[in-house]
Every structure is written in C-alpha cells, then in structure tokens.
Computed example of a mutant assay.
Amino acid sequence: MYVAVKGGEAAIANAHSLLADRRRGDRSVPALRLDQIVEQLALGVDRVMSEGSLYDRELAALAIVQARGDLIEAIFLVRAYRTTLPRFGYSKAIDTATMLVERRVSATYKDLPGGQLLGPTFDYTHRLLDPELAAGGDVAEPLQRETETQAMPRVSAILAREGLIEPDGEMPQDHVPGDITREPLEFPMARDIRLQALSRGDEGFLLALGYSTQRGYARNHPFVGEIRIGEVELELDVPELPFAVPLGTVRVTECQMVNQFKGSAKAPPQFTRGYGLVFGQSERKAMAMALCDRALRASELGEDVVAAAQDEEFVISHSDNVQATGFVEHLKLPHYVDFQAELDLVRRMHAEYDARENPVKADDKREAAE
C-alpha cells in the first residue's frame, strides 16, 4: 500500500471515488445501458468473452462499462468473476460441422461446395469515417439475419479425399481433456491444452506472432482453408439419462489454416493444419491462433525450431494478457526497499569507478571527508 501517500487509506478510497466519477462522465450525457453495449459494441463484447473464458454477453458488457472501455481490464474482471462460479460438469465437444453458419469464406477454392457466405464483415468496406453515425444515423430498416442451413463440406475434407492433407488429429478414446483453468501449465503441452491457452491468449500478441511467421520467422506459407462463424449447440451428458441434454447455443468463430509441408522421413509432402476456435465473431483472433498453432507444431512435424512463434514456452507463457498486465503493472507499486538497495550499490560502484579513473580526485574527496 502507498502508506507514504498523503492520507493513506483515505487517499486510496478517494482514488476509487474519482475513478467511479470519471467512469460515469458528464451527467448530462445518458448513461450507457448494457443492452446498448451488447448490441452495438458486439465485437468488443466477444473479445472479452473469449479471452475471459466466460460466455455471457451481459456480464462482458458490464465488465466493459466498469473498466471504462479497457478491454484487458474487463477480461480480468470476467476471469475473476468466473472463479466464483460452481462447476457442474463438462459439455460435450461441439460439432462445428453442424454449425448454423452466418459467415463462411475460403481463400482456397473459388467455387466452394456449399458456397461462400460473406456475412457481416469489414473486409469490403472503405476505411472512411461515417459522419452519419456521429449524427445517430441508422440503416433504413432492420435487416433479417441470414444463416445457411445446407450442408457445407469442409475444405480439409476435399483435400483429404486426394490424400493431400494430413489426417485430422484423433485423441485416444480414454483421453481426458485438460483444463488450464484448474491445472497449472506444464511444458511440453498436449495440443488440446495448448489450444486452450491460445484461445484465451491476447489477440494483439498472437496477431504479432502470426504476422511474424508470414514475414519469414518460422516461414510456413498459409492459406485460409476456411473461416466459419455461426451458432453451435451445446450438449451435456447426464449420468441418469441415456442421451445428451441440449443446453442452448453459443456463437463461435472457427478457422482452419492450410499450410505447406515439404514432408519428412515419416510423412509424404502434403498440406498441414493450423486451428483456431474462439467465442463470438473474432476471426482475426481465430486466424492468428491458427497461425500460431501451426508454428508450435514444428517439433511434432520434424521442423527446426528457429523463431519465437515456434517456441511453446515463450508463446504460451507470454500470451496471457491478465498475467502480463499483472506483472507489468505491479511495477507501479512501491519498491522502495529494492530501489534503495540498488541505489546504494550503484553509489559504491560509481565511487570505485571514480577511484580507478581519477585517483587524484578520489584522494581529494577522501581528504575533504576526513
């Protein structure tokens, strides 16, 4: 605690009051409602849910308000709240092949079976500020949300029919998925644990690492095999029942990256996979995750580990924005004793340096001191 700050605990309490006042802002401006944030700042809400590991739009919106729009602080709040919730069990693995698709694009096939579905995207917009939005303008009338219900075979399945892509990873029947929210991280990691960590990882950090792989650090030329955004059903196995119980749906973004692979002594030349899956509409994060996932498979595929994006300990240990924030921001807290110890050390070293470089001046100082 900043006991040296004038007022001590009272000063900290006042700081909290000032924070609350700044959060509310000008009282003549209507306060934000949570439903406004959920509906109109949806991508920020999705990021908080994804990196906070809690699928609840209203809680994510509340965290954004409380954090004054600081998304990393909001993610911290959501994770802290998540630790207070009871654990009823684990849902079954979602089947993204049955997704009610709102957006589905591929960069690998022009005429894709099932078609391309653009959905809501910034990809084709001009990056120009729209003054009509500042004036409160809306579209002429609400649009009906479009979803696609017909079968959409995966791009990876098309390549698999020709034997040109590695098989999808299969886990043993008795494999119990790890849970990084309950178990400490250990290296090396199984891929399911690593994907969990990447899904919770900071979007900006993973984006930079993914970009680095495209610029030649762990070069591995990627293609977006497929991006899907839509609703998937959650189901829970209940021991007393012979069938799984539907719990509802969640919106997710899935990315499958197709990467070149020259082959090895055990595998023929073929495409390999990188995978990303996150809550909400977060395709930039899903793509960055897929790029990092593929880079982190270097050892598994017999490739040389030569870049940061391929180093599992480096990537996973530094990707969590809550841990990173805590470690960086703790530097703001008092370090008086540590600093005084280093200050004394530097003074002694400085005096020794002066004695070596300027012996006459050092003698004068000693005489003056005596």
Rank of each mutant, 00 (worst) to 15 (best):
Y217V: 04
A218P: 03
A218V: 03
H221A: 10
F223G: 04
V224Q: 08
I227T: 13
I229R: 08
I229A: 08
E233D: 14
E233F: 11
L234V: 14
L234G: 07
L234M: 15
L236P: 06
V238E: 15
V238K: 10
V238Y: 06
L241S: 12
L241M: 15
P242I: 07
P242S: 15
F243T: 13
V245N: 11
P246G: 09
P246M: 07
L247H: 10
L247T: 09
L247S: 13
L247C: 09
G248S: 12
T249V: 15
V252A: 08
V252E: 11
T253L: 13
E254Q: 14
E254R: 14
E254W: 04
M257G: 06
M257F: 10
M257C: 11
N259W: 01
N259D: 04
F261K: 03
K262W: 08
G263P: 13
G263K: 14
A267T: 13
Q270E: 15
R273Y: 10
R273M: 04
G274M: 04
G274T: 01
G274Q: 02
L277N: 04
F279N: 10
G280K: 09
S282F: 01
E283K: 04
R284A: 08
R284D: 06
K285M: 07
A288E: 04
M289V: 00
M289K: 03
M289W: 03
M289E: 00
L291N: 05
L291W: 02
C292E: 00
C292A: 02
R294I: 01
A298N: 01
L301I: 03
E303I: 00
A309H: 10
D311S: 07
D311I: 12
D311Y: 08
E312T: 05
F314Q: 02
F314R: 06
S317M: 02
D320E: 05
